[in-house]
Amino acid sequence: MKVGTVERIGMLAYDEGVRLDQERIEDLYRRMGDAGAEDVVCRALEEIAVRMSYANKLHKRGDLAEMRKCLRSLSRIADQIGMVALSSVARDVCACIDQNDAVAMAATLSRLARTGDRSLTAIWDLQEFMM
C-alpha cells in the first residue's frame, strides 16, 4: 500500500449522435401519404418505447432469452422507420447476450436507453418538419 497516493476518478461524457435514415422516412411518406406514414411512425414509436421498457424489466428478471426476442423485434421496428442507431444498438445488446457477457450487456443496455431517448426525440422533430 502506498501512502500519500491520490487516485483520480474520471467521468466519461456520453455524446453519441443519433442516426436517422431520412430517406427511409421520406419513402414512407411518399408511399403512404402523410396520414398513413404518420400512423405507421406513431405506432412504431409506441412499440419501441414499450419494448425498451420491457427489455429493462426482462434484464432485471434475468430472462435473457425473452429479452433477446424483445430486442430483435425492437431492432426490426426501428429499422423500418429509419432509426439506424437504435436498431444497431439493440443488435449489439443481443450480441452481448449471445456472448454471455453480463458487464457488456448492462453497459450496452444503458447505451440503448440513451440512444432510444435521443432517437425518439429526433424522429418526432423530423416528423414535425415533414408535415
Rank of each mutant, 00 (worst) to 15 (best):
E26G: 14
E26H: 07
E26P: 08
D27H: 14
D27I: 13
L28T: 03
R30V: 14
R30H: 14
R30Q: 11
R31K: 09
R31D: 04
R31W: 02
R31A: 13
R31I: 12
R31T: 15
M32R: 11
M32A: 13
M32E: 10
M32G: 08
M32L: 15
G33H: 01
D34C: 00
D34N: 03
D34H: 14
D34W: 08
A35M: 08
A35C: 04
G36A: 03
A37V: 10
A37S: 15
A37G: 13
E38P: 02
E38G: 15
D39K: 14
D39Y: 05
D39V: 12
V40S: 05
V40W: 06
V41G: 12
V41H: 04
V41N: 03
V41L: 13
C42T: 15
C42R: 15
C42N: 15
R43K: 12
R43P: 01
R43F: 10
R43V: 15
R43T: 08
A44N: 05
A44T: 09
A44D: 06
A44Y: 10
L45N: 08
L45H: 00
E46T: 08
E46W: 02
E46N: 11
E47N: 06
E47C: 12
E47H: 09
E47Y: 14
I48V: 15
I48S: 06
I48K: 01
A49Y: 00
A49G: 12
A49L: 05
A49D: 07
V50N: 04
M52A: 01
M52S: 04
M52H: 08
M52Q: 07
S53V: 15
Y54P: 02
Y54F: 07
A55I: 09
A55G: 01
A55N: 02
N56I: 01
K57T: 14
K57R: 14
K57Y: 12
K57P: 01
L58G: 02
L58Y: 00
L58R: 09
H59T: 06
H59D: 08
K60W: 08
K60P: 01
K60G: 13
R61W: 07
R61D: 11
R61T: 11
R61A: 12
G62N: 10
D63M: 04
L64E: 01
L64I: 12
A65F: 12
A65I: 09
E66Y: 02
E66D: 14
E66V: 14
M67P: 04
M67D: 05
M67V: 06
M67I: 03
M67L: 02
M67N: 01
R68G: 07
R68P: 07
R68N: 02
K69L: 13
K69R: 11
K69S: 07
C70L: 05
L71R: 00
L71S: 03
R72A: 06
R72V: 04
R72G: 06
S73R: 13
S73L: 10
S73V: 10
S73W: 03
S73M: 11
S73A: 09
L74S: 00
L74H: 01
L74V: 10
S75D: 01
S75L: 07
S75K: 06
R76C: 13
R76M: 14
R76D: 12
I77T: 15
A78Q: 01
D79I: 04
Q80Y: 08
I81M: 04
I81K: 03
I81F: 07
I81T: 09
V84M: 01
V84F: 09
V84Y: 06
V84W: 02
A85H: 06
A85I: 04
A85C: 07
L86I: 12
L86W: 04
S87M: 00
